[in-house]
Amino acid sequence: MTTKKLTRREALKNMALGAAGSLFLGSLPWKAFGNKSAERSKVVLIRDKNLLDGSGNINKGVLQDMLDTAVPTLTGDSDAGSAWEKIIKPDDVVGIKSNHWSRLRTPVALEQLIKERVMGAGVGDDNIGIADKGILNNSIFTNSTALINSRPMRTHDWAGVGSLIKNYILFHPRPSDYHPDTCADLAEVWKKPMVKGKTRLNILVMITPLFHGVGPHHFNEKYTWKYNGLIVGFDPVAVDATGLRIIQARRREFFGEERPISPSPHHIELADTRHNLGNADPANIELVKMGWKEGILI
């Protein structure tokens, strides 16, 4: 596992960010709640070329190293334990909003790692839930005080891409209410009482992203590639916008010409410009790149 060595300036900056975070709610940076601030949003992209074995299976040890490097880098801590203690309090009830699309789901190994880290922050097993569908009838989610949002990025027939922002659509009893104008206003879901202010961490899975879709189920392995990455951040819009840039770059590389994602994934930009959920403009995103650089595309 290759990790980035912090310069003195970066270390001081991270410490300052960490200290600023500790002033709020005891330890939590306020942007963790998914609200747009005037500041730039920090996003950590981490990759490891050894994440997948020859058969495409995830090496859990490598995944753990990636998560345990990315999260403290985000919070400005020196170790994963301290970072998670800033993110989660022992008395939190934590819903890990996963995505179980059968063709490209949030890896079980990642779900379990997140759960282990939440437990490491002092939360009991019975106060942690992992779910995708059925969250409106899941007592952990209905009583949650904290949410962790994780899903793979993929192209999507109606929203342009399946994003972290879109991953919350099931917090509404009629998801199709958000379908007009190709899901332009998905960020509205984040204002619902069951969600608002609860999201502590967003993890976009970029291990084998889907950059193009064919057929009724919009999936063909031919249009995935081994990117071996995770993108971690407090601001879901900034994380999604970063993932989207990688997907678009991969499409240019693969097709050899500009091929816009259709329909347009404009819900990400509108989450910034219309709903103030976070920052989509790369100029307002501080992107920290760690680990494997070959084919990084961004």
Binding site: W101, D157, G162, H217
Partner: peptide, 10 residues
């Protein structure tokens, strides 16, 4: 909607 998770609108 139930069957084509995500693509029914098309």
């Amino acid at each position: 909607y139930d069957y084509i998770d995500g693509g029914a609108e098309l």
